[in-house]
Design a protein around this nucleic acid. Structure first.
Lengths: 157, 157
DNA sequence: GTGTTCAGGTTGATGTATCAACCCGGCCAC
DNA sequence: GTGGCCGGGTTGATACATCAACCTGAACAC
C-alpha cells in the first residue's frame, strides 16, 4: 500500500491523543445526557446564558461566546425553547431578539455544572496533577496559536 | 450564582484544552471535506479498510476497529455505498456480510491520507516537538487509563 | 418619504449520531 | 424436523451539524 507500512512513533502518539479526546468527550456527554437530560449543545448554551446577570442576552452574544454559526444556534434555540429550557424575548430592536433562561433551564444547569466539573476533575485535572496539567495546557495553547496562524495564511490567499 | 463566581486555574486550563480540541478537529475535518470530499466518518472507515490486505473485511471487524455502534456503522456504510466508496459483499455466512473498498474509495483514501498526515504534523506534531509530544501522549494515555477504570466501576454497579 | 444596503436571524435540505425496535439465519434442544 | 434462542445487521425516529437561500427591519443616501 505504501504510506501505511509502519506508523511512526509520532503517529502513534497522535492516535493516542485522538483516542483520549474521543473517549473523554463521549464519557462526559453520556453522563450529562443520562444524569441531567442535557446534550453537550444544551449545556454549552445554558452555561453561556448563566454568564449574564439577567439570565438573558442577545442571540448574537451567545453566538460569539460559543463561536457557533448563526444557523446552528438558531436551530438549537428552537429545540431548547420547545423543551422549555429557554425562551426567545423581543428586545428594543426587533431584528435582534434576546434569549432568556427559563426557571427550568436554570434548574437544569445548576444541577449539571457541579456534576460536570466534578467529572472533569476526576478524569482529567486530578489525573494529571498541577504540574503536568500546566504543561498540557501550554501545549494546547501552542497548538491553538499554530491553528490561528494557519488560518490567517489560508485567508490571505 | 454560586458555582461560577470565578474559574479556577485548572478550569481555565480545561477550557484551553476544549478549545484546542474543537478547533483542531474542525480544521482537519474541513480540510478533508474541501480537498478530498470525505467526512471524518468516511475517512475513518476507509482507513480501517485499507488495513486489510484484500481491501475487504467483515462488518463486525470494522465495528471493532472503529468502536462504533453497529447501527451507526450500518447507516454510514449505506451512505458510503451510495456514493460508491465501498460495496457490501455477501460472505459464506449470509448473516455477516463483508464490506469492500471500491476503486473509487481506494483512490480517495490514497489521496487523503498523505494530506491528512501532513496537516497533523504541521499543526500538532511539529508544534510540540519530540519531547513535549511524548509528555503529551503520556498524559493522554493516563487519562485514557483513568477513563477505563471509571467505566469498569460504573459497570460493576 | 423612497429605495438600497446590510448585519443578524430564520428556514429547509442534507448528512451525521444515537436509541429502540425489528429482522434473520445459523444453532441447539427436544 | 420444529421451535426457540441469540448474535449481528438493518431500519426508523429523533436530535444535532452544516450549507445555502431567504427574510427583516434599522440605517443611510438622496
Amino acid at each position: 500500500m505504501g504510506w501505511e507500512q509502519e506508523l511512526s512513533e509520532a503517529d502513534r502518539m497522535w492516535r493516542t491523543y485522538i483516542e483520549m479526546a474521543k473517549h473523554l468527550a463521549s464519557h462526559l456527554q453520556q453522563h450529562l445526557q443520562r444524569e441531567c437530560d442535557l446534550s453537550a449543545a444544551d449545556f454549552e448554551v445554558l452555561v453561556r446564558l448563566t454568564e449574564s446577570e439577567r439570565r438573558e442576552m442577545p442571540v448574537a452574544e451567545v453566538a460569539a461566546a460559543t463561536q457557533w454559526e448563526k444557523s446552528r444556534l438558531s436551530h438549537q434555540l428552537t429545540r431548547m425553547a420547545q423543551r422549555g429550557l429557554v425562551e426567545r424575548v423581543d428586545s428594543n430592536d426587533r431584528r435582534y431578539p434576546d434569549v432568556r433562561l427559563t426557571d427550568k433551564g436554570y434548574a437544569a444547569i445548576n444541577k449539571a455544572v457541579p456534576e460536570h466539573t466534578e467529572m472533569v476533575h476526576a478524569l482529567f485535572v486530578d489525573v494529571l496533577g498541577p504540574e503536568r496539567l500546566a504543561g498540557f495546557a501550554q501545549a494546547c495553547a501552542d497548538v491553538l496559536r499554530a491553528l490561528d496562524e494557519h488560518r490567517e495564511r489560508d485567508c490571505s490567499l
